[in-house]
C-alpha cells in the first residue's frame, strides 16, 4: 500500500494484521476499547451496553468516532462465555467491567455443554451487535470481536486457582474442563464470523506466564486454542495474553494465530526481533502507565517507541481502563497517524 493513495481504516488495519509493509502502523484497540468519555460522546453506557446490542454497537464504533481508532471492537468484558455456561456475572458499573462472581463446578463434576447457547443471553447480544456494526461500518472499519480463551473459560468454570492446582494433582480433570470450553469457543467463533466479524481477538489471561510455564501452556492452552481457532476460519486471528510474554511468543505463534497482542512488560523491539515476521504484533502501550496514570507526553514517547520498534498495530497492551483520560488516547492516535 502506498502512503499517497487514500485507504480506508479497514484496508490499513487488515493489511497491518497480515504483516504487510505500510507507510505507518495501524492504530486502534483490539482489547477492551471503551472509556467513559466515549460513553458520554455516543450516549451509550455500561452496564446496560453489555446486554443491549444497539448500545453495544454504538460503543463498539465509539473508539473510531471519538478517537479515530482504525477498527470497531466489541464486547467489553471476558465473561460472555462463562455466562453462557451458567456462571453468575456481576455486570459492574459505568467504569467497572463485568466479572464472574462464582465458579460453577468442583473438580469431580462433569461440565454440561450449554446447548442452544448461540440463541441466548449475551452471546446473542454480541452476535447481534456484530451484525449491526457490519451493516453500518462494514466497508470502513474492520469489525474486531473479542472472545475468551478456553483456559480462562475453564478457570471460570472450576475456579482459576483450583484449575491451576489441578494441573498438578488432577491433569485429566483440567483437560475435561478446557475441552468443553474449547468446543463452545469454536462454535461461538464460527457464529461471530458468520455474523460479520473480520477479526477475532481472543484473550487468554489465565494462560499468562504469571501463571504457567511454556511447557504447561503447550499442554493446557495450545491444543485447545487451536481447536477454538477452527471456528475462526475466514477471519484474522489475534491471540492476546497478558503479562511478560517474552518467553511465550513462540508458543503463541504455534497456536496458529495471525497476530499477537501483548502488554508493555515485553520490550517492543525485543518482541519484533523474537517474532521476526512470523505473526503481526499488536500493542503494547501500558494501560496503567502511561495511559491511565501518565501524561500525554509520556504516551507520545511510548507510542513512538512502539512505532519505531516495528509493531504492525499500535494499541493499548491490554483492555483500556474506563477512566483513561481522553488526552492520553488522543496522544497515542495522533503520534501514530502523524
Amino acid at each position: 500500500m502506498n502512503g499517497g493513495i487514500s485507504t480506508t481504516p479497514k484496508e490499513r488495519f487488515i493489511a497491518a494484521l497480515k504483516g504487510e509493509k505500510l507507510d505507518r502502523p495501524a492504530v486502534g484497540c483490539v482489547t477492551q476499547s471503551v472509556t467513559v468519555d466515549q460513553m458520554e460522546a455516543v450516549g451509550a453506557f455500561w452496564p446496560e451496553a453489555h446486554s443491549d446490542a444497539n448500545q453495544m454497537a454504538l460503543l463498539g464504533a465509539a473508539g473510531y468516532e471519538v478517537f479515530g481508532f482504525e477498527n470497531a471492537r466489541i464486547p467489553f468484558c471476558l465473561t460472555v462465555e462463562a455466562e453462557a455456561f451458567g456462571c453468575t456475572v456481576d455486570l459492574g458499573k459505568v467504569d467497572r467491567t463485568p466479572m464472574v462472581k462464582k465458579h460453577l463446578y468442583a473438580a469431580e463434576d462433569t461440565p454440561v455443554f450449554p446447548e442452544g447457547f448461540l440463541e441466548k443471553g449475551r452471546v446473542k447480544t454480541v452476535i447481534e451487535a456484530t451484525k449491526l456494526l457490519k451493516q453500518k461500518y462494514g466497508d470502513k472499519l474492520p469489525i474486531v470481536v473479542g472472545t475468551t480463551g478456553p483456559l480462562t473459560i475453564a478457570g471460570h468454570l472450576v475456579g482459576t486457582e483450583n484449575l491451576l492446582l489441578m494441573m498438578i494433582t488432577d491433569p485429566e480433570a483440567v483437560h475435561k474442563f478446557i475441552k468443553v470450553a474449547a468446543e463452545l469457543e469454536k462454535q461461538y467463533l464460527k457464529a461471530l464470523v458468520a455474523a460479520g466479524a473480520d477479526v477475532i481477538a481472543m484473550s487468554d489471561p489465565s494462560a499468562s506466564t504469571d501463571m504457567l510455564s511454556g511447557e504447561m501452556f503447550d499442554e493446557f492452552a495450545k491444543p485447545y486454542t487451536k481447536i477454538a481457532w477452527e471456528g475462526a476460519e475466514g477471519a484474522i486471528k489475534i491471540l492476546h495474553i497478558c503479562g511478560d510474554t517474552t518467553i511465550l511468543l513462540d508458543h503463541m505463534i504455534d497456536t496458529g494465530a495471525d497476530a499477537l497482542s501483548i502488554e508493555e512488560k515485553v520490550n517492543p523491539a525485543k518482541a519484533v526481533e523474537l517474532v521476526a515476521g512470523r505473526a503481526a504484533l499488536v500493542g503494547n502501550m501500558g494501560v496503567v502507565r502511561p495511559l491511565l496514570q501518565g501524561t500525554p507526553e509520556e504516551c507520545v514517547q511510548h507510542a513512538l517507541e512502539i512505532k519505531a520498534a516495528g509493531f504492525n498495530v499500535v494499541a493499548p497492551g491490554c483492555g483500556l481502563a474506563a477512566r483513561v483520560p481522553k488526552a492520553n488516547i488522543e496522544a497515542m492516535v495522533k503520534t501514530v497517524k502523524g
Binding site: 486457582e161 491451576l164 492446582l165 494441573m167 498438578i168 494433582t169 504469571d210 501463571m211 504457567l212 510455564s213
Partner: peptide, 14 residues
C-alpha cells in the same frame, strides 16, 4: 527463578 510457576506454588502453600 522460574523453576516454579503458580500451580507448584499453590500446591506448596496448600
Amino acid at each position: 527463578s522460574k523453576q516454579y510457576f503458580l500451580p507448584q506454588v499453590l500446591l506448596a502453600a496448600q
